[in-house]
Each structure stands twice: as structure tokens, then as C-alpha cells.
Design a protein around this nucleic acid. Structure first.
Length: 492
RNA sequence: GCCCCUGUGGUGUAGACCGGUCAAUCAUGCGAGCCUCUCGAGCUCGCGACCCGGGUUCAAAUCCCGGCGGGGGCACCA
């Protein structure tokens, strides 16, 4: 139906246009991770969207480490995060760490205190909350700016212990959401910072440093998760105090991966307890884990961009990720034979064959060939077949050793025996096999369980990080080659 | 409890702001077939959705109201 109408192919896929682009001379976005844990799919969504938009509008993309909590920032994370971004082919035009910018935050804090737009609160958190929930000011709020500055200097000089004082931004005390009222901007911390060590003991809180940096760095579009809705309201109050224009905000919903814990806290806890093997434990949804399993960055990127910046929560299935990944892996991955739980089979009455040469990739002859040598034992050729394949086979059944020969299973006794039938391609079940020079392989499955088997000799020359397909088994990445070959499993 | 967001097939999305061309897009999934010396890939065909109820209108997935469902936030974390 609609024969003419249907021809219209102009259906635009990809991200929607960013709002307000015309209001700015240049689009500037940022990715602002807390270096307290590994990046996962959820973080990457923020990064990828921000990066993609910056590139689309020929703007600027900033990487900013939000490391203002000395309690949980981890030195190793800065580089792991950069690595993950590079792996996903993201480049950034500027890089900052908030821990380098404390003087800047202090200056603004002082300005706000002297202008009566902020105050140093020494109330206990319980007392403050009680007043706040009633919409009433705490006693500290009423003090003169001179007294505020005095308190502030005492904070900076180390005269106030952790938890004893906090700088609050004044807001409307009747704001409908109590969480927004007189929110905290800077606090005293006790632990040394991984980068700055003992140099500072007063650290800004998220909403304060984010606001200042977004303004100072000229960020035009803030793309972030909807869990920041209330934070945005808080930040707007600060922008008003300082007479700044709030950037355009774009929010997206939560991204759930079926059956996968994306939580940073849980991940870190698991690693500490030894429940998980590391940031790249194959059970995790971290970028490091996906990389380890052999997912290709383009697949992850395309999937995330296809989901786009929708405000609705999405729960992704692994199947979808697999489908995206197969598209890329299938093109690139060379093929090899692998038999899980190998079972020995003797094939009698065969021609005198020594080896067989096969293409590395069925669709790409230019990838080259591999050689599978054949082992002989007396008058028979020796093969190893996957245990599961042999249990299904019946005595008398004819099947084909793929790319080699047809045989009939003659005995399923203690040793499996078969008889040669012919070389010509036949319409019978085809199964993978290995013979001489087979290599032991350990496969790490996505649940971190192990499977063992033998692969053809050609895999011995593979390097770590190679992505390949074990035919009829799945796509894997070479995770280690010594002391033995270990492969991490991605998917079928 | 309080503040806020959201609801299109099994899943992820397009369409919604500017109602009609939407008997609703694309992908994935599932089913059938073709192709292929892999249970992978590719090709063809098929299955499958506008949360519910009102209202506005000649006309509603699209606008309004109510209900129900899902989610986020209410840290001296980010």
C-alpha cells in the first residue's frame, strides 16, 4: 500500500537535535566522573551523549574529574577512566580535576559569605534539619557577614573539626522541596586527598563545585541523569546569587542491564571482599569487563546512542548488546575450531591425509589460512570431538568432521570409533574437531565459571586481546596466553 | 510522608512540542523459508504495541482532566 509514499527513505535515525544550540556561539559539554570507581554503561551514556553532541555541533568536550571527596577518590581511577574513554574513541579538548581548583572555590565561598548569600553553619545536622523542615532559619544564618568571614577563616585554618561546620548557600526557606533549602556547599574533611594529600581540609560539595566549574568552563549543555533533578534546582539558586545564566540542561533516565549490578558501591565492596576479581570481573557491567570479554567499542557506542537521551528508564537485555556486538565481531573475528570437554575418536579406513588448510574467515579470504594437522594412531586418524556432540551421536549415524570428511560412528564403547565414508560435502550434521597439536584452552564464562577444551593448533600463535570465534561455540577474546591459553567469553 | 519525572509490541526506540498523510518507524526477539561445510552471519516473509477512563475536536498515540503503573530525589556522596 502507499506505493509512492513508501519510497520516502528520509527517516532520520540517531540523536535528536540538542535544544538551544542557536543561543550559544559554541556548544560546550562535559563529562564529569567521580574517580571513585570504574565506569559502567550508565556513566558511558553521559559521556557518549555529551561527546557526541559536542562533535556534532563542532563544539568542545571537557573531561572533568569531580574528585572533591577525599574519602573515596582513588588515584588509579583517573587513568582507568581515561583509558575507557579512549577505548570508546572519545577525545576531549580539555581536562580538569576539581582538586586543582580549590582556591577558586574558596574565593567564591568568601564572596558569597561577605555578600550575605551564604553562611557558616555550626548547628548539628539534626537541629538544622528540624528547622529546615519547618522552613525556619538556624541561628547561624542570622550572623553578620563579618562573623561569617571570621568563622570561614577558622575553618580554613583548621580550627574546626570535621562535622563541626559547613558553609550553606542561602535559598528560599519556603522552597517546596526541603532538600533544596539552604543546601551545603563546603565541608571540613578528615582524610588526606589522594592527589592533594594534606594540603586542604575544606572541600566543596558537589553542587557547589559543579556550578562554579560549569560556569567558569563555559559549559552550555549539561547532559545528566535524572537523579540530578533536585541538584539542578539547588544549583540554580547559586547561579542566581552570582548573577549567572544557567546552561541548558538535558536529562536522561536510568539504564538498567537485566540482571546486572551497575552500582559502583556494590562493585567496590565486592572487590574488597574478594567476591569479585577486579574492575574487569566478567560478571560486572563495567567498561573494563566488557572490554575484557571482547565486546567491540563501536557496538557499545552505537547501542547507547540508539537509546538516546530519553527520560524514561530503559532496561536493556543482554541479547540486544549481543546483537549489536555480533554485527561488528562477525566481520572481524577469525574462526577456529574448539571442542569443549573433548572425547577421543579413532577413525578407520581413511585416506592418507596429513593436514587440512582452512580459511581464517569464511567471508574474507584475505585474512589468510590456518593449518590443522592430523594425528595418526596405527591405521586410524585421531580426533577429539566436543563431549556434548558425541553424546548426541548414535551408533551407525553418519556425520561430517567439518571441512574434512564424512564418517560413520561405528562404536560408542570405551573408545569411540568411526569409519571413513568420503570426502565430498554431504548433507549431514557437521561438527568441529581437533587432532594433532591441539591446545588446551580455559574459557571464562560470563558468570565467571570455567569451561575447558581443546582448540586447533593455530590458536597458539594468538596474542592477548585478539577477538575470535570458536565455531558453534561463541565469540571470545584472548585473555592470557601463559601459562595456558585463557579466553573470555562474550556471547554466541 | 514530602518534592519531581515518566508510561508506544517481550526488549530498546521513532512519531507527541506544531492533532489528520500513523491500519504507527527502525532495531532486537520470536516463527517460517532461503542461503551458508558453524547452533554465527546474510536474505525473504510473518508475529507483536499507542496503560485505563473521561473530555475537547469533523479528526487524538499526539491536547486537557482523573485514575492506575514505573522511576528518581529528600547526604556535611558525586
Amino acid at each position: 500500500m502507499g506505493p509512492v509514499e513508501r519510497l520516502k527513505p528520509e527517516e532520520r535515525r540517531g540523536l535528536p537535535e540538542l535544544p538551544d544550540v542557536e543561543k550559544y556561539p559554541m556548544v560546550i559539554t562535559r563529562f564529569a566522573p567521580n574517580p571513585n570507581g570504574p565506569l559502567h554503561l550508565g556513566h558511558i551514556r553521559a559521556a557518549l551523549l555529551s561527546h557526541e553532541y559536542a562533535r556534532r555541533y563542532k563544539g568542545k568536550f571537557i573531561l572533568r574529574f569531580e574528585d572533591t571527596n577525599p574519602e573515596n577518590a582513588l588515584l588509579e581511577m583517573y587513568e582507568l577512566i581515561r583509558r575507557d574513554l579512549r577505548w570508546l574513541d572519545m577525545s576531549w579538548d580539555e581536562e580538569h580535576a576539581q582538586s586543582d581548583r580549590l582556591e577558586l572555590y574558596y574565593n567564591y565561598a568568601e564572596q558569597l559569605l561577605s555578600e550575605g548569600k551564604a553562611y557558616v553553619c555550626t548547628c548539628s545536622i539534626e537541629d538544622f534539619r528540624e528547622l529546615r523542615d519547618r522552613g525556619e532559619p538556624c541561628p547561624c544564618r542570622e550572623l553578620s557577614s563579618g562573623e561569617q568571614l571570621q568563622r570561614w577563616r577558622r575553618m580554613l585554618a583548621g580550627g574546626i573539626a570535621k562535622g563541626e561546620a559547613v558553609v550553606r548557600i542561602k535559598t528560599n526557606l519556603n522552597h517546596p522541596n526541603p532538600a533544596v533549602r539552604d543546601w551545603p556547599a563546603l565541608r571540613v574533611t578528615a582524610k588526606p586527598h589522594p592527589r592533594m594529600e594534606e594540603r586542604y581540609s575544606v572541600w566543596p560539595l558537589y553542587n557547589f563545585s559543579v556550578s562554579i566549574d560549569d560556569h567558569e568552563m563555559g559549559v552550555t549543555h549539561i547532559i545528566r541523569g535524572k537523579e540530578h533533578e533536585v541538584n539542578e534546582q539547588r544549583q540554580r539558586t547559586l547561579f542566581e546569587h552570582l548573577g549567572w545564566k544557567y546552561p541548558t540542561a538535558v536529562q536522561y533516565g536510568r539504564l538498567n542491564m537485566a540482571g546486572m549490578a551497575l552500582s559502583k558501591t556494590q562493585t567496590m565492596q565486592g572487590i574488597r571482599d574478594g567476591e569479585l576479581t577486579g574492575y574487569d570481573d566478567v560478571r560486572l557491567g563495567t567498561i573494563a569487563a566488557l572490554r575484557r570479554r571482547g565486546f567491540v567499542p563501536e557496538a557499545i557506542k552505537q547501542l547507547i546512542l540508539d537509546i538516546g537521551p530519553t527520560l524514561v528508564d530503559s532496561s536493556l537485555s543482554w541479547e540486544t548488546l549481543y546483537a549489536y556486538n555480533r554485527k561488528f565481531s562477525d566481520e572481524r573475528a577469525d574462526r577456529y575450531f574448539f571442542v569443549q570437554n573433548p572425547v577421543k575418536v579413532l577413525v578407520h579406513k581413511t585416506p592418507d591425509l596429513k593436514q587440512v588448510r582452512l580459511r581464517l574467515h569464511p567471508g574474507h579470504p584475505e585474512h589468510g589460512e590456518r593449518i590443522l594437522p592430523l594425528a595418526r594412531e596405527g591405521d586410524a586418524l585421531v580426533f577429539y570431538l566436543a563431549g556434548e556432540d558425541t553424546t548426541v551421536l548414535q551408533e551407525g549415524q553418519i556425520f561430517r568432521l567439518k571441512d574434512l570428511m564424512n564418517v560413520t560412528l561405528s562404536s560408542k564403547g570405551k573408545v569411540l570409533e568411526a569409519e571413513f565414508q568420503g570426502l565430498e560435502l554431504a548433507d549431514v550434521p557437521k561438527i568441529q574437531w581437533v587432532s594433532a597439536g591441539a591446545v588446551e584452552v580455559e574459557v571464562i564464562k560470563p558468570d565467571n565459571s570455567r569451561e575447558f577444551g581443546l582448540a586447533e593448533p593455530a590458536v597458539a600463535g594468538l596474542k592477548v586481546d585478539t577477538i575470535l570465534q570458536f565455531e558453534r561455540y561463541g565469540f571470545v577474546r584472548v585473555d592470557a596466553v601463559r601459562p595456558k591459553l585463557v579466553a573470555a567469553y562474550a556471547h554466541r
